[in-house]
Simulated assay, not measured.
Amino acid sequence: MTLSVAEPTLLERAWGRVFLGVAPRDGRHAVAELSQSGCGRLLFPAVARDAALEAVIINTSGGLTGGDVFKADIHLESGTKAVLTTQACEKIYRSDGTDADVETRLHVEEGAALAWLPQETILFDGARLKRRLIVDMGETSNLLAMEAVLLGRKASGESLTRGLFRDSWRVRRGGRLVYADETAFEGDLAARIGAAAALKGASAYATVLLAAPDAASRLDAAREVLNNEAAEGGISTFDGLCVGRLIAQDGAALRRVLVALLRALGGELPRVWHN
């Protein structure tokens, strides 16, 4: 008798891309170009005529796992303002060994202002994610960027014990590299997360960056927030930047501090954050 060997199952992978161009139109910050494909979508809540354009990125696949790809490309013309966020927390599920790939490119021309404020990324146990944030901005433009990560859902008794996460930031202003940041952890993560030199056992953390001509003037207000909130962190200023890092015991505590910190840095919070 001959036994047949089943072919390996090829799992369907999610792929999504969004492109948004923002330009001045009749006194408004308006959508000039829009492209969306795969599981990528953009929604635009109604705002006041003179308010910054608000855009919400949606991943219709409901989350990412190994082999999935999602890319966003945002371009603001000179003098425009926009606030970008996501509809919900992005969930990165357990992988079969391959990596999910997320890339965001932000182009902010002279005199434009962009707030990149996605909701938290949740890493489930066994998740594998490689993420890149690439920014090209003008000397007089303004960028407020934030990325927050939850290591499992603490309220559900989840924790992150294994997996991979690599997060890369590159910010160029006037063509000059002004900020580069790399975060990487892989393998057996429990001991690494608990180390004093890492997260001290915290299950949530965030990086916040303000790049603006007046960034240094926001430092005192930002530090006052950190001195009065239930999260551990710090913020510094250099070369027209304010850079802050926070850790917290859970996502709710982290969100409370982030809301106050982003406001202190002059941020305009997306309405979906309040829902």
Rank of each mutant, 00 (worst) to 15 (best):
A115C: 10
H29D: 14
V56Q: 00
R25G: 08
P118N: 11
H29W: 07
L258K: 00
L3E: 14
V171Q: 07
E120S: 00
R263M: 03
V225D: 08
A191M: 05
D68P: 11
G233D: 13
S78C: 09
A6S: 14
V171T: 10
T60E: 15
D239H: 15
T60R: 08
R256C: 01
S217N: 11
D136V: 01
P45W: 01
A211R: 03
D181I: 02
S4N: 14
E232M: 04
A206Y: 03
L209G: 10
L129N: 10
N227W: 00
R94D: 08
L42A: 06
G266K: 00
T60L: 14
R13C: 05
A14T: 10
P45Q: 04
I58H: 04
L189N: 10
D181Q: 09
L3C: 06
A198G: 07
A30M: 08
L199G: 02
L143K: 07
E103A: 12
V259P: 01
V243P: 09
A148D: 05
A100W: 04
S61K: 02
E7T: 14
G240P: 11
V178L: 11
A55I: 02
E224M: 04
R94M: 09
D181A: 05
N228D: 05
E186A: 06
K91T: 13
I235M: 01
A6G: 11
E77L: 13
V22E: 10
G21Q: 13
F19S: 15
G244E: 08
L258C: 07
L177T: 15
I193P: 03
V18D: 05
D220S: 13
E12G: 15
I247W: 06
L150F: 00
R153I: 03
L129Q: 09
M137H: 13
A206W: 02
V178F: 10
R17A: 15
A202N: 07
K71G: 08
D125V: 03
D73I: 04
L164E: 13
I74N: 05
A148I: 00
